[in-house]
Nucleic acid binder design. Structure first.
Lengths: 380, 380
DNA sequence: GCGAATTTAGCAACAGCGTTGCGTAATAGG
DNA sequence: CCTATTACGCAACGCTGTTGCTAAATTCGC
């Protein structure tokens, strides 16, 4: 791991991110709202608000007149002030979404990808999809970039796809650079599950606690949000949660070990035993809770969403009965509110997060997308 | 989770911590060393060095005269400038260590604790032990506080022991406050395993990557260092790694589930089959790697150290053979260099870390031990 | 109606951080 | 003894958030 130095631009970015996070999570807010939520002084908040308003990210929305005293100016986030495009690159499909600054999905499209597609296939499909989205609306100067959420292994810091699991044409592909050249936009590359949990975190604000996104979709993976940031691990390979052994004498898994969560779960699912499949997944989730003590568990993935309520109920039950001291250790268990769009939407929000989220002082490499020092609009 | 605001005192603390971390990890350093390691400008480093030197934390140690040009001033950390006491509170013993600013253990004592001891027993034993240590050396003004590493569940943010597992007299004990009153020193309370991994992190510097400390000692636990900070989870309960299921049809565990790593491991250990016990643990470690993608795995705990090399070899082997793409995903696997002192030493280093480590902007509650704004000596 | 109390907001000066520009000290080599 | 080189610090600067105080806009009481 490397660390960057901290200077005043970090302070600005950090406190600004706190204010923006308030703006995302409430419909309207005023100065005192932010003061209470962040602990900044009123004067500091005024300065931050002035910067954000000058940038067009927030705007006044009337006044609040309640009792005696000068009325307070009410502000609101301007969702349309910034956009990002997100892509969920799966084995057979490419899902593209347009997300605004508030984290709302404004467009969503799905298109098939050729079997065993190549980087060129993907780049062309991205080009076509991005063009289609940008043609519809006039996003000039407000489109901040494109986020790609993809199966690993990959190298987030350097924008490399090392070996997309199940795709033979992908070995050490510098996808970020290629896509930036092809699209003419800043690009952020990350694992699908990490993108997914970023969606949840972005939409819940700067105080979103430790959380995992459990994704069941041709395999089982997990995306983690720990200590207020995405957890990617030492090689962007965190989240291979499906390949944790839950049954020492279980069937052999593709990864070479025996009784992985994924293969055991698959056995139950293929037998049509949804209830058992859900219970198996729940065992894995409780394992995760015991290990990481999470505040939130979010469920996602096409294979899970097909039996969403079965899975949710099974996990909810396990979390309440199988964790000791469940009275105070129980996390929230929810289905992702974004449904099948989570990954793509999260990929888009990773772009927004790099620009307008809490800045990161720990790096594997320099930031993908540079923050603007001045308040000029971002974009192509 | 809550977040604090960021102001210039954060900047100072952060960059100062970077410099101190360099000082801890090398024998001597000069300005250019720090510039290269941190990315700070030479002028900034000069200012930080001046502050640290005025505080007595570092001192000049000659000059380096190599070739042409003005010789560079060489500095070194002053290990004796600050101390912290650490305590490992186990079920039957109290281990106390004195640690200096460099993270070196200077004293170590172990004393038995009465069976099923009460908070009062512990406080008195702490008092006696701390007095014995401070009587030996003159630590006036250089002793920064006392760290307690203890079995959970506990609440780190508020300094509460909720239920020390296996101790009946411990329910919602405000141990931090009690100990501060009893000892007249700042106190930091945390889980044993979290303290342990802090020891490794403190001694390895500010760029220590994602890591876990695996502790086998009347149970199996894990301490985590993720993203440059200790990972405690939403309720200071992360690390119950021993209670992750690895064998769905395994024997019932004390936690209520079946086939937990701990109970399966115990079965092998009690049968005297060290090799199998080690292999079981290794399965758990690989599970952890798959989930978190760690850079370092550190092994510790009395029960493990009794067969240290067996365990180390088994984990090392598993990590090389059972993780796909092991060529670039392999973590370092080591036995803790501090041996049986890790937990106590880490507890002490948590005190030092709060004062001289990377400051934390994410909190469960306000900081336990306030940083000094000026450069006055810390201590009683 | 009009002044007082109350609440909000902003201007101005300030302290503290890292940065930049430039001058100075200390060395080796010609 | 001069010059090139390297290390280092002073001083001014830009930028944070903070503090102190003044001004604006409202409600309430007389």
């Amino acid at each position: 791991m490397t660390r960057t130095t901290a200077d005043v631009t970090f302070l600005r970015g950090y406190n600004q991110a706190l204010v923006l996070a308030v703006g995302r999570t409430v419909r309207t807010f005023e100065r005192s709202t932010v003061v209470d939520a962040t602990g900044l002084t009123p004067q500091a908040v005024s300065k931050v608000i002035a910067r954000l308003a000058a940038d067009g990210l927030i705007r006044p929305a009337g006044v609040r007149r309640l009792g005696i005293g000068k009325p307070a100016v009410v502000y609101e986030l301007v969702p349309d002030s910034r956009y990002a495009i997100g892509a969920h690159v799966a084995r057979r499909t490419l899902r593209l979404v347009l997300v605004d600054l508030a984290g709302t999905v404004r467009h969503s499209t799905v298109n098939p990808l050729p079997g065993d597609f190549t980087p060129e296939h993907l780049l062309d499909a991205l080009r076509v999809g991005v063009d289609a989205i940008t043609a519809g609306d006039d996003l000039r100067g407000r489109l901040t970039g494109v986020g790609l959420g993809m199966i690993g292994p990959l190298d987030h810091a350097n924008g490399l796809v090392r070996d997309a699991h199940g795709l033979r044409q992908w070995h050490d592909v510098p996808l970020r650079e290629l896509a930036e050249a092809h699209l003419g936009l800043p690009v952020h590359l990350d694992k699908d599950v990490t993108a997914g949990i970023t969606a949840e975190a972005w939409r819940h604000g700067a105080t979103f606690g430790d959380a995992a996104l459990i994704m069941v979709e041709s395999g089982i993976g997990g995306g983690f949000w720990l200590g207020g940031a995405a957890h990617r691990g030492a090689h962007t390979n965190a989240g291979e949660f499906g390949h944790t052994v839950v049954d020492l004498d279980g069937p052999r898994c593709v990864c070479g070990r025996h009784g992985c969560l994924e293969v055991v779960h698959l056995g139950a699912a293929e037998a049509g035993d949804v209830a058992r499949a859900a219970r198996v997944l729940a065992v894995g989730v409780v394992n995760l809770l015991q290990t990481l003590d999470l505040a939130h568990v979010v469920l996602a993935g096409a294979d899970l969403l097909r039996h969403a309520e079965d899975y949710r109920a099974a996990v909810e039950r396990a979390v309440r009965t199988d964790v000791p001291r469940a009275d105070w250790l129980t996390p929230t268990v929810t289905l992702s509110g974004l449904g099948a769009d989570v990954i793509a939407a999260g990929a888009a929000m990773q772009v927004l997060d790099q620009l307008y989220g809490i800045p990161d002082l720990t790096l594997g490499a320099p930031p993908t997308i540079a923050r603007r020092t001045s308040l000029r609009t971002a974009g192509a």
